[in-house]
Design a protein around this nucleic acid. Structure first.
Lengths: 178, 178
DNA sequence: GAAGATTGTTGTTGACGACAACAATTGTTG
DNA sequence: CAACAATTGTTGTCGTCAACAACAATCTTC
């Protein structure tokens, strides 16, 4: 079962959205973020909680990533897996899972999907016959190059959303988690 | 959508073929974050992508929140729901859902749970008999006070983790999403 | 008053994290 | 070397969460 993508993207707001979208009619943009129509509700109730802000931001960022890479049908996790394999060919599934903080059980399905699309290949390791050496296929390598360009575009959306300097500051603050 | 992100960039770095099984033995704590034993794998492969860092940070922050409030069995979403209701008694489910970016279908279960624990009460609105006016019970109000103290403790953990100034900077950067 | 929208509800699907169990294959140790 | 322990990939289950669809009850509007 390929993990299909599902990005409800209704609302299609332009991402160059101005920081102050004041007069909107609350067209319910789903779970993205509260809009002006709701901001008067418990405005300060959740302020000062890092977790809440981070969660909302994370949802926004993922939605934009998925939307930006919708044409190639690649989701964030798939992209991360291909990136790690591309940078470190021959890694075992265990190593990839550990590096990305994914359960190895989960990675099995991810790789099934990617292998099915001929982007990644599992090769039985000769030195340790329990494990699989992971590689990008030729198709996977050229595809990844395109994914990277789209991911860079997504990253620009982030910069437009929170500001270029803020994005860099954020990356710096959270570098310990990368 | 919520997914994991992981993005990578900055390719470069070539690696040898075989993974050369290292000596990692720490049976790790699971999916928290890469530890030193794995940092040599594609170190720079995932740098420069906000989504990946934010995702990992969000996981960490939620785990700490859940752990810190484990004694009272309150999860982040439940806390946010009670906080909003506490600050704005009488809100409808629709209003709460919209404010928090939760689907109203999902909020039904959350409120079922909270109402079952006698923390929140649904009162049929007299003006609009379709909707429920949400209130904290007396028990809910005193409980929320305790939750807030524990949440403040959690917030201190965040400050210890990334630094007090960094936490404030982060809250400022992400204030648009709150 | 009829058509259409909104609110709460139930149910389904899919992505995801945490676990448990298992076969195949090491490694470790007596 | 043989028994035992650990690791790797795999399958499966359970619970959480977001996105949808459908529905009854209830406004709203024309």
């Amino acid at each position: 079962m390929t993990e299909s993508i599902h990005v409800s993207n209704r609302a299609a707001k332009s991402r160059a959205e101005t920081p102050a979208p004041r007069s909107r009619k609350r067209a319910g943009n789903g779970a993205s973020r509260p809009d002006a129509g709701d901001l008067d509700i418990g405005l300060d109730a959740l302020a000062g909680h890092a977790g809440y802000a981070v969660r909302r931001f994370q949802i926004w960022i993922f939605q934009d990533f998925i939307r930006t890479l919708a044409a190639v049908d690649i989701r964030p996790t798939q992209y991360s897996v291909m990136t790690v394999i591309g940078a470190n060919p021959g890694l075992s599934q265990m190593a990839v899972a550990k590096r990305l903080g994914i359960e190895r059980a989960r990675l099995v399905h991810l790789l099934d999907s990617l292998e099915h699309r001929d982007l990644v290949s599992r090769v039985r390791s000769a030195t340790d016959r329990r494990s699989h050496a992971l590689h990008l296929t030729a198709r996977g390598r050229t595809a990844l190059a395109q994914f990277r360009r789209l991911a860079a575009e997504h990253e620009r959306h982030v910069a437009e959303k929170i500001g270029k300097e803020n994005r860099e500051k954020l990356l710096q603050i959270l570098s310990a988690f990368t």
